[in-house]
């Protein structure tokens, strides 16, 4: 009784300590918490998954499963285009989702382009690529620049619109060279595939801490029908909902939460080489569950950054809710006591 009453006049410094502990402890001692995926994230995941040769290739030997060989033999006809529009300040939120999407693409052999008009984002692209490829190459698969992905890198902002519109016709003509100065038409990912323009490169995934994704919706989507997905900081997410509702934006990963959800989907399906299915999402197999365990070493730490951060965020949120409830109980008890005294 006294405890709750004391809560009423609790010194704010105790609150500070609790919050600090609630944020730091989950980061030091990771634990498994449930991550439920939301529709905008699932939509984005599904769309990228539908581009995979594991879904699209012909089942040559007729065994009902697309094997790795069959997927490799398939002439790629889909790709995604990633536009990085942020600097290092929003990296804590955006970087994990970029890594998760790239990882998804590599596991499912979906070719991707990376691009930016911010000079400061060019190293972020390199970092994301190296984080993903380094870890996956440890498993023995070789990932080649120019074949599995093309890094267009930095292009001056003045070329933004010309490139954006030019890719409706031919990406090789619009951007000409990748970041290393190779002509796009000489790279295997362009030369040996059917990927030419938005018809194949049917998803633009743009990560930013602003409403930059809009320019893709206005210019590229309305003219060429390309799907636009966005990765946003949590603060900006609310502004994007109208576009999700109107279908102008196909999917969204918002903040750390969106990144954590995407990481989860990648671990459940892509890592096990499974096609996304809503049914399996609710009744996961053991193999899927094993990958979800973030306390084990099945998944490298770099690939669970969002979930680790999300743990801290969740605990802090719950702590605040608990504080609010306790505070209110104390308030009511006090009021009751006062009423009695009257």
């Amino acid at each position: 009784m006294n405890f709750i009453k004391n809560l009423q006049g609790l010194d704010r410094r105790y609150v500070f300590v609790f919050i600090a502990v609630a944020i730091i402890m989950p980061l030091i001692f990771p634990f498994n918490s449930l991550t439920y995926t939301t529709t905008p994230v699932e939509n984005l995941y599904q769309l990228i998954d539908s581009y995979s040769p594991y879904v699209r290739a012909d089942d040559l030997n007729g065994d009902g499963i697309i094997s790795e060989e069959e997927a490799i033999a398939f002439k790629q006809d889909r790709a995604i285009f990633m536009d990085f529009f942020h600097d290092a300040s929003t990296m804590p939120e955006l970087f994990p989702m970029e890594v998760a999407v790239m990882r998804h693409c590599i596991y499912r052999r979906v070719p991707f382009f990376t691009f930016t008009i911010m000079e400061v984002a060019a190293p972020i692209i390199e970092e994301a690529i190296s984080v993903v490829t380094d870890e996956i190459q440890k498993t023995g698969r070789v990932i080649e620049r120019g074949k599995d992905y093309i890094n267009i890198g930095y292009k001056p902002p003045a070329l933004y619109l010309p490139i954006l519109l030019g890719m409706g016709d031919d990406i090789a003509a619009a951007v000409e060279t990748d970041t290393d100065g190779n002509r796009i038409e000489n790279l295997p990912m362009y030369r040996d595939t059917a990927i030419r323009n938005y018809t194949q490169m049917n998803l633009v995934y743009e990560t930013s801490g602003s409403d930059q994704g809009l320019s893709w919706m206005i210019y590229a989507r309305s003219r060429f029908g390309v799907n636009v997905g966005v990765g946003l900081t949590a603060v900006m997410a609310a502004d994007q909902y109208p576009y999700l509702q109107s279908g102008q934006c196909v999917g969204m990963t918002a903040g750390l939460k969106g990144a954590a959800e995407y990481e989860n989907l990648v671990d459940m399906f892509a890592m096990n080489n499974l096609t996304f299915s809503k049914g399996q999402l609710d009744n996961p197999t053991e193999a899927m569950m094993a990958n979800l365990d973030i306390t084990s070493d099945t998944v490298p730490t770099k690939f669970k950054m969002a979930r680790l951060g999300m743990n801290a965020q969740s605990v802090a949120h719950i702590l605040i809710i608990v504080f609010i409830i306790l505070g209110n109980i104390g308030y009511f008890l006090e009021k009751k006591k006062q009423n009695k005294n009257l």
């Binding site: 500070f16 919050i19 605040i320 609010i324 409830i325 505070g327 209110n328 009511f332």
Partner: peptide
Amino acid sequence: AFYMATAAYKSFRARSIEATVLLVAAIIIM
């Protein structure tokens, strides 16, 4: 982060009907 926590703790009290609505909405959003 710290200030938000204390501010929420101090101010979300069901003092009146309006405050209760605010309180419930805040908890749902969180």
